[in-house]
Design a protein around this nucleic acid. Structure first.
Length: 916
RNA sequence: GGGCGGUUAGCUCAGCUGGUUAGAGCGCGUGCCUUACAAGCACGAGGUCCACGGUUCGAGUCCGUGACCGCCCACCA
């Protein structure tokens, strides 16, 4: 088989084959280079893939993210970097547990029925199934990751790192356990962090309730609340000390309606005289503000709900009711007692569980927290402080830049992080409770006995927030806490590409942990650190750059969600159009900051582009097979002098420069669009058409043309390869007849701008010829010349242009369907069907009359536009201020324009006159 | 309550540090089965760049105000 390509482009037939081969050949697996080896001298580029959750399969948003990462990594690899792209999957504690629980429910079972051990085993089964599906998808999409290094966040080695990190943070005084108000999801039955609460503006009610004075039940203090059911846990009412309405009541007792407990009126600034009635009920066990008030006034913390948010035994007659049932009944009962003073409509932000959308209940419970603003015992910066400093000092750079501000603001306002979860799926907290002395011991592995001598030790049942472990990944995947060679070579990672949605969840946590655990005293003793002097944050940051990509939406800009049913399955769409076309669609639409409205019509267009490439290759191979020769032999000196060759070579180099610049700035859209218009609009539409006669001509001439064309074509394939890895691989291998210089085009060099190949004269010359050809075509169309009839052409132009046209007479005649070119000395205006530009006048010799009215119309519009331009130019040139202040090239340009436009107006007027 | 982004052709979006009266793709119209490609080729029609004010010799581009969309953060009951 020589240069065989099937007649039609069928991505389904070629893509899986290459995807499998890349993996089988371990093309993208990177061995850690030995110190001093050749590989160790190469610049390194490390990319950590945001590990997808094992809760399902990849969606189009993942494919977008993966496409961007794959383009960057393929580009860097081809640029000569030692590239390492690290893949993995995340156990996603709460999300995965929820999916499996849902599955159990459908079987009439539950995790409680199974018990912890059996349940966890069940989740592992789920993980095997879905984790595998995700990896299979990535393989099919051609992600050029290092499969040898693939991890799962609950792998043994990574789990040990989680324990290690937890113990060290605890030793450093940055992890504490305590009873505080946390966000509690009554459905998931676990605490969740502030970030896992999503606030939704909800139209609710502000209820007014009258609390009678204990001493004088006929007198009331009205209070306002949005959650009347929490009154069961009230242990005080607070008023503002400066609120004159109530100062007399401070220190007096109120009688809590319904439960008839006595509670005090306390003075606290928290009460806002402007809001509601100015008096606020205080429920320390069910509201974070009230909790603080309670601490200040030493109030009892009375928990009135269980873990499913049902009223507990402290709620008296309401015990056993769900919180919302209790709310209704309480309002009803208050009304019956004349203590209900009505309700006002009140819009407020209701907190819901990010995962299951259940309304979150603030709840007092014992949890583990991470102190993010505290100085560690050994001194130095706090977790948040270091992470902030890294961004302030520009050690972590953001694209788009405005995310830096967002990140900094968040770090500025960050609160302690609740890291314990009452789940079964996740990393178990390494703490042991003594049944006898109640002491809690935090150690790396289960101790034989407690300090008190007791052997009755039970491990803490809680697990860690998923983001605790993923926050450690940049260094734990490279071997921390050991001083590994991987850490020396690949840390800090070069880039993080991710979505805005996990900026705080993940990125911020990685920043905190990286700046902490990769700084002394926790930084492993890396050999490469020796003699380095002081280790700084610059060495510790987990990534040097962050690129935040936009969100993929559907064609109508709707957010994609399962409930809306507008999910786009990457594999499905890939099978329909080909991976290359989908990748190119995503890349070409990836302008930063703007969400992507994914539109299949665009993908159709890029499948057509792939088809175009395919057919261009077939055309080239067809000619090659007829005359023999080689595409890769190198071009002859003679070929290098031809205008079209100098032109296409210059254009190729310019475009290569633009593509590299685009990728360096994460402008995937610019890079993709540049290649697209070069390949289709210049290489295919012009270059191949120009050289067709040569290809069909004598063998020697054809071989020379092919040799030159081969260089450009091969370069274009390499240029395109990161965007469309499959089709370029297929054609590239065919080009080399199965004996390519590298095992894959992905291992070849990426084209770069070679300034010595830029040829401005050739580009200008070709631009003139293209303009001439287009004008003749336009004339023919307007004159309704039969497509098959060739027309003689007359040109009036200065010598330089005439010479250019003469030298390329064949090209012009062929591409413009012209037959005979006559150069005339006098203006052509009298001819009728004429086109005039600043460089030439051109007419076709053809009997048929043109549509005079339409032509007049067209010329009239043209004239108006030109006159506008002239007026604008003259106005500016007549302005002394402009002449004095504008840079010379702008003034010169405008003068030139004035002259050219003036001539054009004269010409156009002449033609109009002749039309009558 | 703070903060951020957007508004340019019928649709989706470019337009970098202000510089000749604005570009692309898709769609649309007309004509072509020209021996790589009809998933194609050629030609063409579409825009007072959200509004008002300001800076400037010069403003989609910079500044201010407003309108309309969208997003994020926030412990006011």
């Amino acid at each position: 088989m020589s240069h065989e390509l099937s007649k039609t482009y069928d991505p389904g037939a070629i893509e899986p084959r290459w995807a499998e081969l890349w993996i089988r050949e371990k093309l993208f697996d990177i061995k850690t280079p030995e110190p001093g080896s050749e590989a160790a001298k190469r610049p390194v580029f490390t990319l950590l893939l945001p590990p997808p959750n094992v809760t399902g399969i990849l969606h189009i948003g993942h494919m977008f993210e993966h496409t961007e990462m794959d383009i960057v990594i393929r580009w860097r690899r081809m640029r000569g970097y030692l590239t390492m792209w690290l893949p993995g999957t995340d156990h996603a504690g709460i999300a995965t547990q929820m999916m499996v629980e849902r599955q159990l429910a459908s079987e009439g079972s539950s995790r409680q029925k199974l018990g912890r051990e059996a349940f966890v085993a069940r989740v592992w089964e789920w993980k095997k199934h879905y984790g595998g599906a995700i990896l299979a998808q990535m393989k099919r999409l051609g992600d050029s990751v290092d499969w040898e290094r693939e991890y799962f966040t609950m792998d043994d080695n990574l789990s040990r790192c989680v324990t290690e990190a937890f113990v060290r943070l605890h030793e450093d005084g940055l992890i504490y356990r305590g009873k505080y108000i946390v966000n509690w999801c009554p459905r998931c039955m676990t605490a969740i962090s502030d970030l896992e609460v999503v606030h939704e503006e909800t139209a609710g009610k502000l209820y007014l309730i009258k609390y009678p004075l204990a001493a004088n039940p006929g007198q009331f203090l009205p209070i306002a609340t949005t959650r009347p059911e929490t009154m069961l846990g009230d242990t005080a009412v607070a008023v503002n000390p400066r609120d004159q309405r109530y100062t007399a009541l401070i220190g007096r007792k109120l009688r809590l309606p319904l439960l008839d407990r006595e509670i005090p009126v306390v003075a606290d600034d928290f009460a806002d005289p402007q809001f509601g009635s100015g008096a606020v009920k205080v429920t320390p066990a069910h509201d974070p503000n009230d909790f603080q008030v309670g601490l200040r006034h030493n109030l009892e913390q009375l928990n009135v709900m269980d873990e499913q948010a049902r009223i507990n035994e402290n709620g008296g007659p309401y015990a056993g009711l769900d919180r919302f049932e209790a709310r209704e009944k309480i309002i009803h009962d208050l009304e019956a007692r004349g203590l209900y003073a009505g309700a006002k409509d009140h819009v407020h932000a209701v907190g819901k569980c990010d995962r299951c959308k259940t309304i979150v209940e603030p709840r007092l419970s014992t949890q583990w927290f991470m102190a993010v603003n505290k100085t560690p015992n050994h001194g130095g910066m706090s977790l948040a402080g270091a992470a902030k400093q890294a961004a302030v000092d520009g050690l972590i750079r953001f694209t788009p830049e405005n995310y830096r501000t967002i990140y900094l603001q968040w770090m500025e306002n960050i609160h302690d992080w609740c890291i314990s979860r009452q789940l079964w799926w996740g990393h178990r907290i390494p703490a042991w409770h003594c049944a006898d002395c109640k002491e809690v011991t935090v150690v790396r592995s289960q101790p034989a006995k407690c300090k008190c001598g007791s052997g009755k030790l039970d491990q803490e049942p809680d697990v860690l927030d998923t983001w605790f472990s993923s926050g450690l990944l940049p260094f734990t995947t490279l071997g921390w806490p050991e001083p590994t060679r991987d850490l020396e070579v690949f840390y800090p990672t070069s880039l993080l590409i991710t979505g805005f949605d996990i900026l705080f969840f993940w990125l911020a946590r990685m920043a905190m942990f990286g700046c902490y655990f990769m700084m002394p005293p926790h930084r492993p003793a890396l050999a490469s650190d020796r003699g380095k002097g002081q280790i700084t944050l610059c060495d510790a940051v987990p990534f040097r750059e962050v690129y935040i990509h936009a969100l993929v939406r559907d064609a109508t800009r709707q957010k994609i969600s399962k409930t809306k049913g507008n999910v786009i399955d990457p594999i499905e769409i890939t099978e329909k159009y080909g991976t290359d076309a989908v990748r190119f669609t995503l890349a070409s639409m990836a302008s930063p900051g703007t969400d992507i409205a994914f539109n299949e019509s665009r993908t159709e267009g890029y499948r057509a582009f792939a088809n175009k490439i395919w057919n261009a290759a077939r055309f080239v191979f067809m000619n090659l097979d007829r005359v023999g020769g080689s595409l890769t032999a190198g071009a002859s000196a003679g070929a290098k002098e031809r205008l079209e060759n100098r032109w296409i070579l210059s254009r190729f180099n310019r475009v290569a420069g633009e593509v590299n610049d685009g990728l360096a700035a994460y402008r995937f859209d610019e890079a993709a669009n540049n290649i697209y218009s070069f390949f289709w609009g210049e290489f295919c539409d012009w270059y191949l058409e120009i050289i067709k006669p040569a290809l069909l001509g004598p063998e020697a001439e054809a071989r020379a043309a092919l040799a030159f064309l081969g260089e450009i074509f091969e370069g274009a394939l390499r240029l395109l390869s990161p965007f469309m890895p499959f089709i370029t691989e297929e054609i590239w291998h065919a080009m080399y007849e199965g004996k390519p210089p590298q095992r894959s085009i992905a291992l070849a060099r990426y084209p770069e701008l070679d300034a010595s190949k830029i040829d401005d004269r050739a580009e200008a010359g070709m631009a003139t010829l293209q303009e001439l050809i287009r004008n003749i075509r336009d004339l023919r169309a307007d004159s309704k010349v039969e497509p098959k009839i060739k027309t003689p052409v007359r040109i009036h132009a200065p010598a330089a242009v005439s010479d250019l046209v003469s030298a390329n007479r064949g090209m012009v005649e062929r591409l413009a369907s012209a037959e005979g070119i006559e150069f005339v000395h006098q203006s052509l205006a009298e001819g009728g069907s004429v086109r005039a530009t600043s460089q030439f006048e051109v007419a076709i010799v053809y009997e048929q009359k043109i549509d005079a009215a339409a032509e007049r119309d067209r010329l009239g519009k043209e004239l108006k536009k030109l006159e506008g331009q002239l007026a604008s130019a003259q106005r500016q040139l007549g302005n002394e201020q402009f002449l004095a202040k504008a840079p010379a090239h702008v003034v010169d340009g405008l003068r030139k324009q004035e002259g050219e436009v003036g001539v054009l107006i004269k010409k156009t007027k002449a033609v109009l006159d002749k039309l009558g």
